[in-house]
Nucleic acid binder design. Structure first.
Lengths: 166, 166
DNA sequence: CCCCAGTAGTTTAAATTTCAAGAAAGGGCT
DNA sequence: AGCCCTTTCTTGAAATTTAAACTACTGGGG
């Protein structure tokens, strides 16, 4: 005699899984907090906003359609819209109409924004390095990347990739 | 002739490191978003708030000093204060004066809050499992836990641990 | 051409988080 | 006791994020 399907005992996490999960949650909280403060102090913007400038700097002609930028950064269009409004006030980014589609907008990294990025990048890389990569073996770095990729891919809507950004 | 110290070329990330870092950032964004939506839909609270209920449920007598709970959850006391105010409005948590220290407050998980937690836990565990552990080999789970622990420990203020929570 | 479902992006309000400041109590010192 | 510094927690305002509604445009049929 088996238990009814809707009363199945859930598959709780094993000890190893529980340990990994709690460690991840802690690492995450601490890291996000740490990097947010570092960037807020040194560059005057939160980590996610910095990430937007980075994506733009990688794109051809330093510009990207709003939807593409949102997809690259894994944030909602609404959130991006607010963020760009703020970055525009700072003069780091500029909005530009898309010629081919009247609905579209391009977010363009300004020269000033690019300067801010170049100024902030070394300190940020150093912070990331100190928090993560200087503490891991090359083997662990490989494992970390592989594992994160698996998780990210699993949560990714099919074919949601933008070829020109990785 | 060497470059002046303050003009050193920063140690940029290697390709492997860059790959790992971008993968992590994406996994993180997608995961946080996914779990926030799952819990908001199924239990009516964000992931961090759920985490607070979990910590309380693990504590003896289902209660914890504010500072201890904040440390366990790796959030600021200010953030916790606001969060508890909200959870209190929902009736999931109750504030209680600390007998031994008149400055202190205990956050206490109410019976109702515990019920909410028990109701939400299976679905949440399932979501975590589907997003992470069902996609990794046992070996990778071990690696993931080890790596996250190293990162978390590196960002942890010395001796900030609370013995009664892990 | 007109209609219509879908897409791009914005906007509003509500919720959450951050930041800086502040109230209250503890604890050591003289 | 009185003073000083620290710890605990809260508060209020500003910044950011979320959720849902909304405008404008596209593209495909009839």
């Amino acid at each position: 005699m088996t238990t009814p399907a809707d009363a199945e005992e859930p598959r709780w996490l094993t000890d190893d899984e529980q340990h990994a999960w709690q460690s991840y949650l802690q690492a995450n909280m601490l890291l996000e907090d740490h990097l947010d403060r570092q960037l807020q102090r040194d560059a005057g913007l939160p980590h996610v906003y910095y990430g937007l400038l980075v994506k733009l700097s990688w794109a051809p002609r330093h510009r990207l359609r709003m939807t593409e930028l949102a997809a690259a950064a894994k944030i909602t269009r609404s959130r991006l819209s607010h963020a760009i409004t703020r970055l525009e006030k700072n003069g780091w980014v500029r909005r530009e109409d898309c010629p081919s589609d009247k609905r579209g907008q391009n977010a363009v990294l300004t020269d000033e924004g690019f300067e801010v990025l170049k100024k902030a990048a070394p300190g940020h890389v150093e912070a990331v390095r100190a928090a993560i990569f200087d503490r891991l073996t090359p083997e662990q770095i490989g494992q970390f990347g592989d594992i994160c990729r698996i998780i990210a891919d699993g949560l990714q809507p099919e074919g949601a990739d933008l070829p020109w950004l990785r």
